[in-house]
Write a protein that binds this DNA or RNA. Structure first.
Lengths: 109, 109
DNA sequence: TGTTATATGTAAAGAGGTGATATATAAGGA
DNA sequence: TCCTTATATATCACCTCTTTACATATAACA
């Protein structure tokens, strides 16, 4: 994440990353880094526990894919519950971001 | 705060609230609530420890004001270090908010 | 007399992130 | 051939911030 970490954003970023198609963990982290223009970087210590937590909650499902001569990867796809949660989290972030922007003059109008 | 708390935003909100003039804790919380249109609400358990932390770091300074027939209040004003930190935190939040908005499609373009 | 607003505070618990460390394979350059 | 880098997953101890709940006290109002 940024130098000073912003908390609670890992879930919405991961859910968004697999909204369109399934991805494995490492790919999710790269995807987020690219989409954010390099501003958001996932540490493996954030990434994997968050994936496990999301799976435990039933928001994503993973499956191991092992091919000969390749490392094993765990691909995750979003569940219907995951999609509903993604919608809620986006809205929740939108409200918060707008409120913070106003209440802390983030853009110094 | 929102139903699901967004972490790490208390400091920038408090510093912003006393950027223009000194305020006491309870007033800071009310100010933030009003400025955010009611979206951000401070609990006393977030507010007071954060004020103590900011004072310990030298970003704000407090003084007790006691008037006859009134409750005691502690008024805080921002220090030069506090102003510098406020500038940095605003920038940091701006970068993060923009990155998150893009990387998690917060506004669902 | 009871409730609400004002005003400050702490303790225990939980959530979420970080730095460090670990393991293992494949690809590419010296 | 050896070393480094990228790929790929994972855990542990620690830290920071926030919440729920509790505590205290005064003033205003019904």
């Amino acid at each position: 994440m940024l130098a000073e970490v912003r908390k609670g954003s890992a879930e919405v970023l991961i859910l968004n990353a697999i909204e369109g198609r399934e991805r494995h963990g490492y790919d999710i982290a790269r995807f987020i880094e690219v989409q954010s223009g390099g501003a958001i970087e996932f540490h493996s210590a954030t990434l994997y526990p968050t994936l496990h937590r999301l799976e435990k909650k039933g928001l994503i499902v993973g499956r191991w894919v092992e091919k000969a001569g390749e490392r094993r990867r765990r691909f995750y796809k979003i569940t219907p519950d995951g999609r509903a949660t993604l919608r809620e989290q986006r809205k929740s972030w939108r409200v918060f971001v707008d409120a913070l922007t106003r209440a802390a003059r983030i853009r110094q109008i």
